[in-house]
Design a protein around this nucleic acid. Structure first.
Length: 695
RNA sequence: GCCGGUGUGGCGCAGUUGGUAGCGCAGGCGAUUUGUAAUCGUCAGGUCGUGGGUUCGAGUCCCUCCACCGGCUCCA
């Protein structure tokens, strides 16, 4: 193969540092054939000198080539993006004249935004039709052919596509002014690239793509949704179709399975099934009531939180739910946060009272109620403060996005010198508390000054942001930046926790505030006998009790750790004749503060076992003749396959107390049985579940 | 708020081209006394989200509002 002419060969270097010499004009595909025949099937693109390229890319001498297999994160990304193209092609074939906007790959899938002609809209039912058309395109193995066009030519080519035209025009403008490139622009010159599958379909795109549509096929369209053009709610509303694609049917099936699993652990569903809370229509959207069992869980959470706050030196305060508008005028909330405040009630004709959207002004008034000394600082005021926020109708979502919520809110008044130390201790406190509730997968987010709405000087914002940043960085968990996401009065650190569906929820927030102390003219007397301005730190650890409750439910799939479970033990007699012994067991457990139910033998044992397990009771005790005789109980651990018979009562009590005290994630944790090991491996622990949902 | 979808007894669902509602589970009662994921029988329960319209007649068709679901925008 090697010719005498050196300049007719190209030598490229592969990832493993081996080199390969190929004929001049060879493509990545040719390279595959020479390197390893198996790669022809598995590799769909390549990274050449750091840039992603198609397999049709013509290699140059000295190119460094990294192969991208379909079965990799980057490979799937390309697969999904190519599948999005095919979807757009299918849609334009089914709805001639359809406009297509953008269609990127996203985590776990892809989408494409469309606008159909004549005011038509997609329906869920159209998904199947589109999938069918896509399968036809895939069966035809249409090549993805790369084309380069100068701006004018591209504008002509996409003349019938207003969204594409806008993108191209933006590229031209950006190029002219700054030399910046958008995703579709070629860095070499003022050209754009497009990919053509057939005469009927060409799409503006930077690539790379799979070589032909036949390399696709393991996909599924998931849902139709609305989306604004360029994410701007003032612009045109488009229709978005979401889908996903994988390198194999097996991987696709696993993903679909994960989605179903996520649905099973949806806190709204669990809340109904386990009788924990509801949202009666009569009350209004986003306003929850907690039923006895949910109330018990909530109370346990709150009691624990109170205990921990006491240990941390917080003082408990209470404040009303409504206030005259003046308070929120001074604080600036009416101005900056007004659209989230419920309309006022008018009293005596003119005085306006508002439902409070935040607790801070109330705590400020408590601080200001008397002359404060530096000796009192840091002053840490805590309250489970219920606030009401007007949320747009479309955003309300179970317990995680509500209109009435209770924050585990605290405001810390301290000196500027104490600020850093306080921030550090708060962050440690937050992370400890979250871990005590069994959450472990989180990261920190630093939200900086909002561009449009913020009060205070640049200097103050800078100092506050730096203090938060330095503290966050010292915490040894990932920190990401959220530019412009702060509150109007200060920057914030939030703790983001991942839920079962893989969504991250903003839970705890810590905000540093120089503004409200000024607005309310707060002061303390220092050791120098002069007045000084305190700094305020706003913080909520759960975030809100409601959201935290919902996230915990999903995290545990309803199988709450024993210490949080509304019913911790169910005692089932085999026959009625075992009742008196069972009642004694019940009393002994209750005396230990354990929440225990007795279930009469009105139904077969297996029916009662089933019921108890459906309710996700951590410990189900079956008690029969041998137990009465031996002073034992038969223990069914939640999550274990088989019961443990004849456990001495004292040893059971010791174990469950240990469980509750230790906040075990699962009751099987401390019982050394043959299955308990299996159970942990099977993914009943939150750790295992998280791994499951991360993909 | 916007786009699309949905709304039938506590829950999950059926209800054919418009002819005045069914099933399973749960619940009440009775029987069954059961060693590990559903014992049997029986009874009760719905002005079909709301208000209006079309029609001789509407759960079924049209409109309004409300709520929920999936997203977008926004957020604890």
């Amino acid at each position: 193969m090697v010719t005498a002419e050196a300049n007719e060969n190209v030598t490229v270097r592969l990832e493993d540092d081996t080199t390969l010499t190929l004929d001049f004009g060879s493509t990545v595909s040719d390279l595959l054939g020479q390197a390893d025949k198996k790669l022809i099937r598995s590799v769909i693109a390549a990274e050449v000198n750091g840039d992603e390229k198609d397999l049709s890319y013509v290699l140059k001498n000295g190119d460094k080539v990294k192969l991208i297999e379909a079965a990799s994160e980057r490979g799937r990304h390309i697969l999904r993006h190519s599948t999005a193209h095919v979807m757009a092609q299918a849609v334009t074939s089914l709805w001639p004249g359809a406009y297509f906007a953008i269609g990127p790959a996203i985590e776990d899938g892809f989408y494409y935004d469309f606008s159909l002609p004549d005011g038509k809209h997609f329906t869920e039912a159209d998904i199947e039709k589109i999938e069918e058309a896509m399968r036809k395109i895939i069966a035809e193995k249409q090549p993805f052919t790369r084309e380069e066009h100068e701006i004018d030519a591209a504008l002509h080519l996409f003349g019938a596509q207003p969204f594409k035209t806008e993108i191209i025009e933006n590229i031209a403008v950006a190029d002219a002014s700054k030399g910046e490139f958008s995703a579709e622009a070629s860095p070499e010159s003022l050209t754009v690239t497009a990919y053509r599958n057939s005469d009927a379909f060409v799409d503006l795109c930077r690539g790379p793509h799979v070589p032909h549509t036949g390399a696709l096929g393991h996909f599924k369209l998931l849902k139709v949704a609305g989306a604004y053009w360029r994410g701007d709610e003032k612009r045109q509303q488009l229709q978005r179709i979401y889908g996903t694609a994988f390198e194999s049917d097996k991987m696709l099936a696993e993903h679909i399975n994960r989605l179903a699993e996520a649905e099973r652990r949806d806190h709204r569903k669990l809340g109904l099934e386990l009788d924990l809370f509801s949202f009666p229509d009569e009350i209004g959207s986003g306003l929850a009531v907690f039923h006895p069992k949910g109330g018990l869980i909530r109370k346990t959470m709150e009691d624990y939180s109170r205990m921990r706050h006491e240990e941390e030196g917080y003082q408990f305060v209470y404040s009303p739910h409504i206030t005259k508008g003046d308070l929120f005028e001074i604080s600036g909330h009416l101005n900056w946060f007004g659209e989230n405040i419920f309309p006022p009630m008018e009293i005596d004709g003119e005085t306006k009272y508002y439902l409070k959207p935040m607790n801070c002004p109330f705590h400020i008034l408590i601080f200001r109620s008397k002359q404060r000394s530096y000796r009192e600082l840091p002053l840490k005021l805590f309250e489970f403060g219920t606030v009401y926020r007007y949320e747009k109708s479309g955003v309300v979502h179970g317990l995680t996005r509500v209109r009435g919520m209770t924050q585990d809110d605290s405001h810390i008044f301290c000196t500027r010198e104490q600020m850093t130390e306080e921030l550090k201790s708060i962050l440690t406190f937050v992370l400890d508390l979250l871990r005590e509730f069994g959450l472990s997968d989180f990261y920190l987010e630093l939200s900086t000054r909002p561009e449009a709405k913020a009060v205070g000087s640049d200097l103050e914002w800078e100092e506050a942001t730096k203090a938060l940043h330095d503290t966050a960085e010292a915490m040894d968990i990932p920190l990401v930046l959220d530019e412009g996401g702060g509150a109007f009065y200060g920057p914030k650190i939030s703790v983001q926790a991942k839920d079962a569906i893989g969504r991250t929820w903003q839970m705890s927030t810590v905000q540093l505030d120089f503004q409200l102390p000024q607005r309310f003219d707060l002061s303390y007397v220092g050791s120098d006998n002069a007045k000084h301005r305190p700094v305020m730190i706003h913080r909520a650890l759960f975030g809100t009790v409601e959201r935290f409750f919902g996230v915990l439910l999903e995290h545990y799939a309803g199988a709450l750790p024993t210490w949080l479970a509304p019913v911790q033990v169910k005692i089932l007699p085999i026959r009625d004749t075992h009742e008196s012994y069972c009642q004694r067991v019940k009393q002994l457990l209750a005396e230990e503060g354990i929440r225990v139910d007795y279930v009469q033998a009105k139904e077969p044992l297996s029916a009662r076992i089933r019921q108890a397990k459906l309710e996700k009771t951590p410990y189900v005790l079956a008690v029969g003749d041998e137990d009465v005789a031996g002073g034992t109980v038969g223990v069914n651990l939640r999550g274990a396959k088989d019961p443990i018979r004849a456990v001495p009562l004292e040893s059971f009590i010791a174990k469950i107390k240990e469980d509750i005290r230790g906040h075990w994630i699962n009751p099987t944790q401390g019982f050394v049985t043959e299955d308990s090991v299996d159970v942990q491996k099977q993914g009943t622990t939150p750790e295992a579940r998280d791994n499951h949902s991360d993909l």
